[in-house]
Design a protein around this nucleic acid. Structure first.
Lengths: 353, 353
DNA sequence: CTGTTAGCGCATTCAC
DNA sequence: GTGAATGCGCTAACAG
């Protein structure tokens, strides 16, 4: 069974013309039952692999891709996703892709609604969605489903939708990682503090909730008491009281030897602990944001878990190209990204891609 | 300054033909001073980016690449490098590359000499070398230099050679990582044990030596005493005595709370510690070999540092393709791979590529 | 030294 | 329904 036959060769074998083979390969119809069977027979016998180069060069139409994600801030998670998308665009510069960026405020449902209502799905060949609000996202995706326009999720997956692919991190497992990294190997376990942020509406993001649940599962699975987790609240809007609150908390919980910040605000806790002057507490946070990186370098933040946002964005584009141009991949797959453990020593060499 | 001009367009702008532009782009000579200047002027004004698809499709010659690496064992480091090379070949199936694999015994200089003497450099378009023996590798590379055949290093770089690229891990920094991961956050530092293997000739590999040096630098840089590192010897050839030796070692050094194995044999130490029945000692080793992975899952090995061997192999091929086909990249660059920290919780989701 | 040209494998248009 | 013909951008062989 030799591979890599060209369309022309296949056509000869099937006793039809290249045009007909092409019509079969792309399900473009207008093929007689007889020709169809002939081509399919040859195809199943010899197999066929697109020559992506020839395909790309010939198929030089342009694609419009919509990107709807939370507004990126300087050096934060979503700016990483964005740069991953942009990097992919550069790597595939020979394919004409034009992007429409739409940003919303991830803390404001109405900003998402406003963006979403402005969008005409029909204009696009595909979409990349960084979801936050379940119900509204589901409704939004429905509009793409109706038009059979493929979309992929980055960062999180929303149930009840049918994305072409999803790229997300294993949040539960990350919760377990946090525990393992913070529990020292003592005979008697030390305690772990979790920093919670007071938030408008009091709701934590689903990622944070899943990570928190992962911590509990870990403790259960390793036969430890859930009691060793202590929670402390931090206010973003009224930060003056935070230092005192943490100091008091640590006095009351002297066995705390590790601090977990389940979102990207580890730098806040690092700064507070530095102000208080405590030593010997290990801190973990998420996302290689600029602030977190500074703390890592300064040694005030010990570990950052990176969920490869750049790669998520990059993979999203690659998945769509694979689909739109090359008709490969099976749809609907949820791709879990690696959860990388970054410390001061490996950071300088770290590359997501 | 618009981009993505085609060769034809550039030719028109320079007042020459496409053939001449092509000759300039590929340094193929036979171009008059005048034409050269005209083309270069246009080139510098407008820039030029190959359309890799058109290039690949047109340039359909085949390439022979030589791969000289230590013999891979099942699920070990070099088998990962090998699978990275093979994966790249699959991804670039549209480019005709044929590989000649040559394996040598990394513990036997003479096996390398034997392999090397069998090789006729002129047969190849490029080579990938996993070096072990400095002097002989240097001589070997000289033969490629003479023929202007590009070669890349994986795993390590050998001084005094001029590879097109090198892919290697930051071994010194990895030594630092080991220390940081093993030192608990106590007021008083615990000790770290380093496992050494008795070896024929008593020489450690250069990677191990660099990692060991990195540990010392780390201690110095963080103001700790070099005294906290204790060394224990293990015998590969006479393993019966190992368990007792380690047990005795731990009795004599009760403050050891972390074990470092600077090569890929962490599983040996993990098994010994399990036999002895000690708890509360954290162990670190290198490379995601099958044995190490088993120990990681069983919880007897705590941390594995992975230096992305798959990616090293993959990148080596990509670098050569970039060079041979697309004339891009600047030569001579040493690419440091990420050093990934793998624990039981992130292992299931870990992907090098 | 230089311009012209054929052809790579695929997609698509246009006659038949 | 179908095949022939054209072109994508680049490379290389060839004729001048």
């Amino acid at each position: 069974m030799k591979r890599n036959l060209s369309v022309k060769q296949l056509a000869k074998l099937a006793g039809v013309s290249a045009g007909t083979v092409d019509r079969v390969l792309h399900n473009r119809g207008n093929v007689s039952e007889k020709s169809l069977r002939a081509v399919e027979k040859v195809l199943s016998e010899y197999g066929y692999k697109y020559n992506i180069h020839a395909s790309a060069i010939s198929l030089r139409r342009s694609y419009r891709i919509l990107v709807v994600i939370p507004a990126p801030g300087k050096g934060d998670y979503w700016s990483s996703v964005k740069s991953g998308i942009e990097k992919a665009l550069g790597d595939y510069a020979d394919i004409q892709i034009s992007l429409d960026w739409m940003f919303y405020d991830q803390f404001d449902l109405f900003s998402f609604r406003e963006v979403k209502d402005r969008i005409d799905a029909k204009l696009y060949d595909a979409a990349i969605i960084g979801p936050t609000f379940e119900t509204d996202t589901r409704e939004f995706c429905g509009r793409f489903d109706e038009e059979s326009i493929p979309y992929v999720f980055v960062d999180a997956m929303i149930g009840g939708t049918s994305p072409y692919a999803s790229f997300t991190a294993p949040q539960e497992a990350c919760g377990g990682m946090v525990c393992r990294l913070l529990l020292t190997n003592r005979e008697k376990d030390s305690d772990i503090a979790v920093m919670n942020m007071k938030r408008k509406g009091g709701v934590s993001s689903s990622n944070v909730l899943e990570r928190r649940a992962g911590m509990d599962s870990y403790l259960k699975a390793t036969g430890r008491s859930a009691e060793i987790i202590k929670e402390v609240e931090i206010s973003l809007t009224e930060p003056q009281g935070n230092v005192d609150a943490v100091a008091r908390f640590l006095e009351e919980n002297p066995n705390v030897k590790g601090f977990a910040v389940l979102n990207s605000r580890g730098h806040i806790m690092a700064d507070i602990l530095t102000k208080i002057g405590v030593k010997g507490i290990r801190t973990v946070s998420f996302d290689l944001t600029e602030e977190n990186i500074d703390c890592l370098k300064a040694g005030t933040l010990d570990i950052i878990i990176c969920q490869r946002p750049v790669r998520q964005g990059y993979s999203a584009i690659v998945a769509l190209i694979d689909h739109l141009l090359y008709h490969r991949r099976e749809p609907g797959v949820v791709h879990h990204m690696s959860a990388d453990i970054i410390i001061r020593e490996n950071f300088p060499y770290y590359s997501e891609i």
